[in-house]
Write a protein that binds this DNA or RNA. Structure first.
Length: 296
DNA sequence: CACACGTGGAT
DNA sequence: TATCCAAGTGT
């Protein structure tokens, strides 16, 4: 992967050309979409598919068009509006970030990666996604899509290994052209390629703009032999499941949910109590002064 | 660093 | 039906 046979510039160039030719028309790619809109969309897109995010995003931005608008609402309203996007703590984090933006940055989403990283719920991916896609600065943006495309096209492996921030950022950075705008396109294009062509299950290599440059394809699609991801635990009957049932009840309620109502949601008291205690500890639920439980 | 954290669609 | 997967982050 060094010297004259480095295919990375060619890969980046072709993926960028492919993206410029055509790509999905997504709300956050509209001209004039605000930095706040980008930030909200990135929070929602953390582990939730694009198709489920779009309607919620529109509602959210209609209701809270600026960070200050969200900061002025109770955190529980953010959790309620989050609806069934999943991982409701993200709604809490987004609300906290809105408060921090209002307090620290005069209500304007910061441009610096360091300042973005200091906000609750923003990590390596989201900080750089905002800096690049909203502000146009040059940073590597690494998500599950780019990790997979790099693993295949550059490293010849069917799947990316376990995430390693330092290494992953460097690998993406090595694909970026010098120009800020061109680099932003490569970031977006690598994500798009991973999302619609170089997908996890059945990659559509016949439609891939870098098929002839792909190291994985060139070596006959060798089976992945690296470290495997841990086995995903069953959702049915898990603590997550019980937490989800309780949160659904809290979102629907506009008066305190009683212990009896909570008890009706899950038969095993030990697990039920553990789930509720976890939600209280996470700040997703609070005890009402009248008894019962409410969103914060 | 491995794990916990929701939810629903696809295979 | 069971499993995989989805624009990750915090601990």
């Amino acid at each position: 992967m060094d010297g004259a046979d480095d295919q990375r510039p060619a890969i980046a160039g072709r993926v960028a050309d492919w993206y410029r030719e055509d790509h999905r028309d997504l709300p956050w790619r509209r001209p004039g979409f605000t930095a706040w809109g980008t930030l909200v969309s990135e929070f929602m897109l953390q582990q939730t598919p694009v198709a489920r995010v779009i309607p919620r995003l529109e509602e959210w931005l209609d209701r809270w068009p600026t960070p200050a608008d969200l900061a002025a609402s109770p955190a529980g309203e953010a959790v309620r509006a989050w609806a069934n996007l999943g991982y409701p703590r993200r709604a809490l984090w987004l609300h906290a970030a809105a408060v921090q933006i209002t307090e620290r940055h005069g209500g304007d989403v910061p441009r610096d990666v360091e300042a973005l990283l200091a906000l609750t719920g923003i990590g390596d991916y989201t900080a750089r996604a905002v800096a690049v896609f909203s502000f146009g600065d040059r940073h590597p943006v690494v998500d599950t899509n780019t990790r997979r495309v790099i693993a295949r096209a550059v490293h010849g492996q069917g799947q990316p290994g376990p995430p390693h921030a330092r290494r992953d950022l460097a690998a993406m950075d090595a694909l970026l052209p010098d120009d800020d705008g061109d680099a932003a396109v490569v970031n977006a294009a690598m994500m798009e390629l991973g999302a619609v062509v170089c997908v996890a299950r059945s990659p559509r290599c016949d439609e891939c703009p870098v098929a002839e440059l792909c190291a994985w394809r060139a070596t006959g699609y060798p089976a992945y032999d690296g470290p495997t991801k841990g086995v995903q635990k069953a959702y049915e009957g898990s603590d997550r499941h019980v937490r989800g049932l309780i949160m659904r009840e809290l979102r629907a309620a506009h008066v305190p949910v009683t212990d009896a109502e909570i008890a009706s949601l899950w038969p095993e008291s030990v697990q039920r109590d553990r789930a509720l205690a976890g939600l209280l500890a996470d700040g997703l639920a609070v005890r009402s002064s009248r008894g019962g439980y409410l969103l914060p």
